[in-house]
């Protein structure tokens, strides 16, 4: 490895390969043409992803209300937000949400994959549509619907009443202890289908002969799942983990429409605090600083996931 890294990369050889035409070094012109193809996508990416990101970092060092001339204040915005205990609570809440947005959906997705793989021949499309539906619906509509389901006279309490558990009924999203869990379960509902779709797709790539071999070796269904399916969808699990974790840490829309951080801040998440700083308080600098901190947290956690699930081969 080390010698390979230090040695300069082999230049493309101009010698005939396999006796065919001589392979030539691409002249600079052709290189430029290559960039031309990339340009439209690159421009959009730079303009709408990279540029705003850099701008946010810059704004986080300013004191700016959005209108009056901005003044440079260095890291003052960062000091201010770290002094506020609300931030730590919000981060803690979003870490709890990872359990509901990421862990449980991945487990549920794997379970559904195990149940559906190789057994359901007809109606697979039906299952896919049903489980993937939450991903297609806008989260704002989902949020309002769940707010009604969870209300004190909502469907969930009605069901509890019917099965004789009426005494457990409550206004779930208004409950001090259970609001965050109730909110998290909406995430579970929304993310499980996505995970299942990813895993099913991954599992279909697995060579059927592996299952046959496992069967011949006397492996039961559970063993087959553990030793064939699971390793086969490892990459998909990583992808699902990354997507759902980002959804949990950067959650905003769902929380905004269901609880708006309530009751009394029990479901505050960092995204909500960013919104409030920017649009309620007009503190663009503080909001940007918080957004930068949130980005760092997301990148750290995602980096961690990628590191621990990396290919060791």
């Amino acid at each position: 490895m080390a010698s390979e890294l230090s040695s300069p990369a082999a230049p493309p050889r101009a010698t005939p390969v396999r006796g065919g035409e001589p392979q030539v070094i691409h002249p600079p012109k052709r290189r430029l043409r290559g960039w031309l193809y990339v340009l439209p996508a690159l421009a959009v990416y730079l303009g709408f992803a990279i540029w705003p990101a850099i701008n946010t970092v810059r704004l986080s060092l300013l004191s700016w209300d959005g209108i009056l001339p901005a003044t440079f204040v260095g890291i003052e915005n960062y000091i201010k937000i770290f002094r506020d205990s609300a931030l730590f609570e919000a981060i803690l809440h979003s870490l709890v949400l990872i359990v509901f947005f990421s862990f449980i959906p991945i487990a549920a997705g794997l379970l559904m994959t195990a149940l559906l793989m190789g057994k359901v021949r007809k109606g697979m499309t039906f299952f896919r549509v049903v489980f993937f539906l939450p991903q297609v619906l806008p989260l704002v509509a989902v949020g309002i619907t769940w707010r009604w389901l969870y209300s004190d006279t909502g469907v969930i309490n009605q069901i509890l009443d019917v099965v004789g558990l009426g005494s457990f009924g409550r206004a779930w999203l208004g409950d001090y202890q259970l609001a965050l869990t109730a909110l998290g379960l909406i995430g579970t509902w929304s993310m499980s289908g996505l995970c299942m779709m990813l895993f099913l797709t991954g599992a279909q790539k697995i060579d059927p002969s592996l299952y046959e071999a496992a069967k011949l070796d006397g492996a039961n269904t559970f063993r087959q799942f553990l030793h064939v399916t699971l390793p086969g969808v490892r990459k998909e699990i990583t992808v699902a983990g990354v997507i759902t974790t980002i959804a949990a840490l950067a959650s905003f829309d769902l929380v905004f429409v269901t609880t708006n951080g309530g009751p009394a801040g029990q479901t505050n998440v960092p995204g909500l605090l960013v919104y409030r700083l920017a649009f309620n308080e007009g503190d663009i600098g503080g909001a940007s600083a918080l957004a930068v901190v949130l980005t760092v947290i997301v990148m750290t956690v995602v980096g961690g996931i990628r590191y621990f699930t990396r290919d060791r081969d």
Partner: peptide, 21 residues
């Protein structure tokens, strides 16, 4: 107040009253 007041939006509170609840 209803138990779920903290999780009730203003339009929903209005709707509850309008339905005679």
């Amino acid at each position: 107040f209803p138990e779920g007041a903290s999780a009730t939006a203003d339009p929903d509170a209005l709707a509850n009253f309008a339905k005679g609840r």
